[in-house]
Nucleic acid binder design. Structure first.
Length: 595
RNA sequence: GGCCCUGUAGCUCAGCUGGAUAGAGCGAGAGUCUUCUAAACUCUAGGUCCUGCGUUCGAGUCGCAGCAGGGUCACCA
């Protein structure tokens, strides 16, 4: 009985096909589906694909296979045939054994990584240090964390890394504006979070810069030229140059302001509940990749133009030529990324490299993979760009110019306030200590936010409607958290459980429904990991919570007088609570014991 | 213009490798708390699955064409 029923079924069906009709079909290729609710049964085989070779009617084929499978498997209590659909009915004892032996385990559905599993490196977040995090970063961070959790739950040895873009012209803009207009402001003196303070000066730069450009244009200078020659831009460029030369003064300012930003980011990461095994800084990696370019030149897969610049010819792959070194020998983004990919591969002995980066960089990663392949790295095809869609607002895209950017910290604050209001309205948590209440509001707020974002397919653009995101009813994080809290309340009251009788208990429809959802957890995690899709896990958790609530609504548990039934139902409760906790944990969402 | 992605209920989204009468939530309407947490449950209304052609016993799902929206085609990252 240890074998999974779906595996048993496909195995038995494969044998029946061979014995009855001489049809060779591997068990893995036999597609079983869940029986639709309106029909009797648990799993359905569609026999149409086999009727031709069997030379019989669909009904006859279904009946013959049904009979053979029933004879072969004691877990199959019966079957029924409707047209070409063969519905298998699974014995209650199977579900009860499943509950007692597997679903009841606290780590049910999770695959523990083996010690020798090759590490998988997931890069996510990767912020610039010139302004605070916004809603777009939130999707990135939540996805990155969750996919890491998901891959780990599927048995991978995951390393989470962050590549902070801590250098470049944008940082210099903030620095310059702070020098000019900052009057020595610090996070301490203003009480502002460091990343917000630096962001403020980035905006300040832009304001004054635009003014300069405007004035130049009014004096008859072409726009292109004005943008290039505005004094502030020239000065920012000079500052970048001084930075690259290691100018002490510039470096000191750079370190000071980046330090403010990191303190701010850490706070936001902390609130979001995300973290990293290793943080890379571009200031330390931006020179990487040059040796790779030399190697590519030696191999003949790259070429040098007359002006000295180095390129990769991708026209054979249907793409263009890609620059890798400028004529002055400096590297570009692609060059760095080639270098950091190799670094990461070496640092961790990684087999797979996963990049959680928005879909506006699809082209970049396509090229990155191709070039790594041309450079002869066998792991190039294991580079995976987890390309996620943009977050849009009800009135369109976020535009910093129009001030429609949703700030990450503000959003979390807002969610926490709402969570507190909602909770106070319900008045169920008055007996909790103030600390416990605060913690509860926090995990409810983040549960709502995370679930709202993670439940949609990562590859798709999504609409972030603030009003809906703080909804706590229906298909939301708090709905699932609430379901968990209710169950835990029952399990606490039940006390210690007695042994489950797996032979003399009859299941009702609702119980069987819950067990079937529980039963599909391992395959859900496997396919979600395969698709890099936390959304599939979110949908699963919702399905499970719904199935449970429906059961809970009209089935007595602690009030049940039949002890065997009562024990079984309590076990079912415990198993659901545990599965909800584990799946929500994959999403990075904490579930409360009470709420 | 080339390439890529998306198009399912009023709104936001599910629909896995093609399979029975396309599903949820929100919103609208109607019920269910002296009983294990009603942040819940139950029911009703709501659909040319963008359009057309094709492949197939069978298409929301696959192919082609078109329409609409988005992204991208930097010596930026």
């Amino acid at each position: 009985m240890a074998l999974n029923i779906t595996d048993s079924l496909t195995g038995a069906i494969a044998r029946a096909l061979k014995d009855l009709y001489g049809v060779e079909q591997s068990p893995a290729s036999i597609a079983l589906q869940d029986t639709r609710r309106d029909f009797r049964g648990d799993y359905t085989l569609v026999v149409f694909p086999y009727v031709k070779q069997a030379r019989k009617s669909p009904e006859a084929v279904a009946a013959e296979i049904g009979e053979a499978v029933k004879a072969a498997l004691p877990e199959v209590a019966g079957y029924n045939v409707i047209k070409g659909f063969l519905n298998f009915e699974i014995a209650d004892s199977y579900w009860l054994h499943f509950l007692a032996e597997r679903a009841g385990q606290s780590d049910y559905g999770l695959v523990h990584p083996t010690a020798d599993a090759a590490p998988v490196v997931v890069e996510y977040s990767s912020p610039n240090t010139n302004k605070p995090l916004h809603l777009g970063h939130i999707r990135n961070n939540l996805l990155g964390w969750s996919v890491s959790q998901l891959l780990a739950a599927a048995g991978a040895n995951v390393k989470k890394v962050n590549l902070v873009n801590d250098r470049g012209i944008h940082i210099c803009k903030s620095m310059l504006a702070w020098l000019r207009y900052g009057n020595g402001e610090t996070p301490e003196s203003t009480g502002m979070k460091g990343d917000h303070l630096v962001g403020k000066y980035y905006v300040e730069f832009d304001k004054h810069y635009k003014e300069e450009v405007k004035q130049l244009m009014e004096s008859g200078v072409e726009e292109e030229q004005a943008k290039r020659e505005a004094p502030l831009m020239v000065e920012a460029q000079q500052m970048l140059k001084r930075w690259e030369e290691g100018d002490k003064e510039v470096r000191a300012l750079w370190e000071k302001m980046n330090g403010w930003v990191y303190a701010g980011f850490d706070e936001t990461y902390d609130r979001l509940g995300v973290g990293f095994d290793k943080v890379y800084y571009e200031s330390q990696t931006y020179l990487l990749g040059k040796e790779l370019v030399q190697k590519g030149l030696d191999m003949g897969v790259l070429f040098r133009k007359e002006d000295g610049s180095v390129w990769c010819d991708l026209t054979g792959d249907g793409l263009d030529q890609k620059l890798l070194l400028r004529k002055d020998g400096t590297s570009v983004y692609m060059t760095q990324d080639l270098g950091t990919a190799l670094l990461r591969h070496k640092d961790f002995g990684a087999e797979r490299l996963i990049y959680v980066v928005g879909n506006e960089q699809d082209y970049h990663f396509k090229v990155l993979k191709l070039i790594l392949g041309k450079l002869g790295f066998p792991w190039a095809d294991k580079v995976y760009h987890l390309s996620y869609g943009m977050v849009e607002l009800p009135n369109g895209k976020m535009k910093s110019r129009e001030g429609t950017v949703v700030d990450a910290d503000d959003l979390i604050d807002e969610m926490e306030r709402t969570a507190e209001e909602m909770s106070r309205e319900h008045g169920k948590n008055d007996e909790l200590s103030p600390e416990e209440q605060k913690h509860l509001y926090h995990i409810l707020a983040l549960g709502a936010l995370k679930y709202f974002i993670l439940k949609v397919d990562p590859t798709k653009n999504m609409l972030f409607n603030p009003a809906e995101s703080i909804d706590f009813n229906g298909n939301t994080g708090p709905f699932i958290q609430y379901t968990h809290a209710r169950i835990r309340s029952i399990v606490r009251k039940a006390g210690s459980a007695s042994a489950l009788d797996t032979e003399h208990v009859a299941l009702n429809e609702k119980e069987r429904g819950v067990l079937k959802v529980l039963h599909s957890l391992p395959e859900t995690i496997a396919s979600a990991a395969n698709a890099y899709s936390p959304a599939m896990v979110a949908n699963y958790a919702y399905e499970l919570a719904k199935a449970f609530n429906s059961f809970y609504q009209d089935t007595p548990i602690l009030r049940e007088e039949n002890q065997q039934l009562k024990t079984m139902r309590i076990s079912l409760c415990a198993a659901v609570a545990s599965a909800l906790k584990n799946t929500m944990n994959i999403l990075g969402i904490e579930v409360p014991e009470r709420m």
